[in-house]
Computed example of a mutant assay.
Amino acid sequence: MKLNEAFEYYKKFVLQKPKQISTEVGRWDIHIAPVLGAAALEEIKNLQIVQLRNCLESKNLSPQTVSHCLSLVRRVLHRAVEWELYPGPVPVFRMPKFDNRRLRFLSASEANLLLQTLHSQSELWHDVVLFALNTGMRAGEIYSLQSFHIDFQHKIAKIVDTKNSLSRMVPLNEGAMSVVQKYFRMSGS
């Protein structure tokens, strides 16, 4: 069995969400299939994985993209063994290490310019951005806020739909409270 055939099974039985399907199929078709897709599962050894990694890195892809591609190959091979499409073993290989964090803040003048521009265009977007700038909350967290998440007395927002699935409390300063009071009613009112 070829690696491309194993990926077709993986796509059919593992990938469920449309975005997940398009992302993984895109990675496969663009980056993996041209290099390893036609290889028989038994032929894929550490050397072939190193060649794939070198090929990906030579395209100047981000380390995160290289890692996603290698991880996808690993997952497909593990499933192929699990589904008894081939006896294995799955090659053991190192994943690229990287620090993908970016630390960037708007300056006060950039934030003011953004808010002025938005105020002239849309009051709602001005308020959303004002709230985001004052709380540091992500867009999805802001959009999912409900009035019962706001503690008006203590000026705190409870965030329950976070990126890492851990709830947290966010203090609300004067700017954030002005937005909260505009769009939410105090509980019991």
Rank of each mutant, 00 (worst) to 15 (best):
F131H: 03
F7P: 00
P96C: 01
E42T: 15
L77H: 01
D99V: 07
Y86K: 03
S109L: 09
A108P: 03
G37M: 09
I30C: 02
E43Y: 10
D29Q: 09
L172F: 13
R101S: 14
A108V: 04
V66F: 09
N164E: 07
R138H: 13
S144H: 09
E110H: 13
Q16E: 05
L36A: 04
H31N: 04
T65A: 01
V128M: 06
V81G: 14
Q64A: 11
W83I: 09
L56R: 04
K19G: 01
R94L: 15
L56W: 14
G37Y: 04
L118S: 09
K17W: 14
G136K: 04
G140Q: 10
K97H: 14
Q121W: 12
P34D: 00
N134G: 14
F98D: 08
V76W: 01
E123I: 05
N4E: 02
E43I: 15
S122V: 12
Y9N: 02
Q116V: 11
R75K: 13
I30K: 01
G140H: 13
M95H: 11
F148W: 12
K59W: 15
L113G: 14
K2M: 04
V129P: 12
R138Y: 13
S178H: 02
P171T: 00
G175N: 04
S67H: 13
E5Y: 05
R104D: 10
W83K: 09
K12Q: 02
L172E: 02
V35D: 00
E57N: 09
T65N: 00
K59Y: 14
D151I: 14
G175C: 04
D29M: 05
S144K: 04
L61G: 10
H78P: 03
L115N: 13
L166Y: 05
K12W: 05
A39H: 02
I49S: 00
P91W: 12
I49Q: 01
R102Q: 10
A108I: 02
R102L: 04
D161S: 05
N46P: 01
S167W: 00
V170D: 01
V128I: 10
L41Y: 07
L52P: 05
K158Q: 14
S107N: 06
F184G: 05
E8W: 04
L56N: 06
V170K: 00
D29F: 10
G26K: 08
R27T: 12
H31R: 04
I21P: 13
I142N: 08
I150L: 06
W28K: 02
K158F: 10
R79Q: 08
K19N: 05
M95C: 14
P171W: 00
V50E: 02
Y9F: 07
R168C: 15
L103H: 12
S165V: 03
E43F: 11
N164M: 11
Q121M: 02
N134Q: 09
G88E: 01
A38Q: 06
C55Q: 10
K45S: 13
P89S: 13
W83N: 10
V66I: 14
V81N: 11
W125A: 03
T117S: 08
S71C: 14
I150D: 01
T65C: 00
T23R: 15
N46E: 10
L106M: 13
P96S: 01
V170R: 00
A176G: 06
P18H: 09
R74T: 06
S107G: 09
E5V: 15
R27E: 04
K158E: 06
I44S: 01
N164L: 09
P96N: 04
S189E: 06
L70P: 14
H119L: 07
C69S: 07
E123L: 02
V73M: 10
I32N: 00
N112D: 12
